[in-house]
Computed example of a mutant assay.
Amino acid sequence: MGNLDLNLIRTFVMLYETRSVTVTAEQLFVTQPSISYALSKLRDVFKDRLFIRTKGGMEPTATAQQLYSELSRSLSMIENTITNVQSFDPAKSQKCFRVAMTDLGEMTLLPSIFARLQKEAPNVELEVVPLEIEKVDEWMSSGKIDAVICSRHLESQSIERHIIRKERYVCIINDKFSPSPQALTMEQFMSHRHAVVTKSLGHGAAEEALAHLGVKRKVSLKVSHFSTLPSVLEKTGVMTILPFKIATLFTENNALKIYELPFEVADFEVALHWQSRHNNSSSHSWFRELIIQSLSEY
């Protein structure tokens, strides 16, 4: 066991979480042959294959599964201890933080976050990763991202969350094509054609509510980004469902009208999420607090 240094533990944990030699090499900033060499040493130490190459990736053996919980916990404690001993100075740091969010987040939240970041840590780099809600757990556990801002409640026990604000969904349409009454009826809602945004961004609550009612609206357009909608709405008579905050933003520069939905959709929370293993990391704590403070008056 004397040959099991910190780099070997880090390689084992990352390989277990990613199931990929390629991704592990990328995350640890080493070559793939280096990962293969480290795996060979790990196999010698534990007298077990540890990982078996399959079509779905590197599948851990029973021994690897038994080792992971203890080694990952030990690695987290060691890395947090090292991070806390090393002072983090945001004014001098050149660290890169990665946060996943939708284009809605980029439009409404990112300006405040980046402005504060530039003021407090001008040399720190911020990389925004386009949100794919189905991949968030994998991205968080593998270290591809440091945090995510989204409206979906992430179920993993290893993920912490802080609520940024509460929101509700509304309907929006070009004012020229809007129904005359102030209140939108279900009949009027169903008579219009609609533009929808892919569920991969985490905004599928309205579709789920309609499915529960047993009705299906007329969808004419599906897009992967919210930011394309203002120009579409400006030239057509389609309706779309948006969070109230972004709908209000869209109406500032476009002749659009907002309606309350004619059916019940639960309000939702926009929250910051991060891995609990980073709770005691001084750099990650500073980054989380920067996001929270920059959005506190949003």
Rank of each mutant, 00 (worst) to 15 (best):
E167Y: 04
A183I: 14
E160P: 05
R152M: 06
I145D: 13
V170A: 11
I149Q: 09
K144Q: 15
K166C: 07
H162E: 08
P181M: 02
R165P: 00
F177Q: 12
E167I: 04
S180G: 09
H162Y: 09
E167T: 06
D175L: 09
I149A: 07
S158Y: 06
I164K: 09
R168N: 12
I149M: 13
I172T: 04
I173M: 05
S156I: 03
I159N: 06
K176Y: 00
I173D: 02
K166R: 11
R152W: 00
Q157G: 04
E155H: 10
R165D: 02
S156T: 03
A183L: 12
E160Y: 09
R161E: 14
I164P: 00
A147C: 15
K176D: 03
K166T: 12
A147W: 02
S156N: 06
V170N: 12
R161F: 04
I164N: 03
S156F: 03
I173Q: 08
K176N: 02
A147I: 06
I173L: 05
I149V: 15
Q182I: 15
R168A: 06
S158H: 13
I164F: 02
H162G: 01
F177W: 07
V148F: 12
P181S: 11
E167V: 03
R161P: 05
D146P: 10
L154H: 08
A183C: 05
R165Y: 11
C150W: 06
S156A: 09
I159A: 07
A183V: 13
I172E: 00
E155A: 08
E155G: 00
Q182N: 08
F177P: 00
H162M: 07
C171Y: 01
I173E: 00
